[in-house]
């Protein structure tokens, strides 16, 4: 169970940590606890899987990954596992998810690919299509970013 202090810690950590020699000391001071206590709790969240990591999050477009392709693959149930593993193994793939299907949306496996151009993404998709034997797919490019932010937890909604 997360107590009030845990929630306060998460609310701070989901913003930016200071770029200073002892960033957690600064945050601990804001919270009114010791650096040791803060680090103890953070390491505990990490062990429990609540905190994936403290890390740099890139603006992918700025960092040179210009084409962001979500590829949805039409895969029969019996082949799903095998195909998902092939997709996941590719170095350009960042995520593979299985999602529900609908009469007008029969594509059950979603893989996210980052490339430097649409041509590069298409090349990778072609390669993956050959590797998996799946030739029915949709490449969905994000042609316009309408919102991109990190989730803010424990903040009252609207």
């Amino acid at each position: 169970m997360l107590d009030k202090l845990d929630q306060e810690i998460i609310k701070l950590l989901q913003e930016n940590i200071p770029l200073a020699e002892q960033p957690y000391m600064i945050l601990a001071n804001q919270l009114g606890i010791t650096e040791e206590e803060l680090l103890k709790r953070l390491n505990k969240y990490k062990e429990e899987g609540i905190l994936r990591r403290v890390a740099v999050i890139l603006n992918h477009r700025e960092a040179g990954f210009k084409a962001n392709g979500m590829v949805a693959w039409l895969v029969s149930k019996d082949k799903r596992e095998e195909v998902a593993k092939i997709l996941a193994r590719h170095s350009a793939t960042t995520h593979v998810y299985q999602r529900p299907t609908y009469p007008d949306w029969p594509y059950s496996l979603f893989s996210m690919l980052h490339g430097q151009s649409q041509a590069e993404v298409e090349e990778i998709v072609q390669e993956l299509s050959e590797l998996t034997g799946i030739d029915d797919y949709q490449i969905l490019y994000s042609t316009e970013e309408l919102k991109k932010t990190s989730m803010k937890y424990f903040i009252e909604e609207q």
């Binding site: 940590i17 999050i57 700025e62 960092a63 990190s150």
Partner: peptide, 13 residues
């Protein structure tokens, strides 16, 4: 320079 969006915690929703 805008290469980095954020430096912080990534939590499991």
């Amino acid at each position: 320079n805008g290469y980095i969006r954020r430096i912080g915690g990534i939590f499991s929703s």
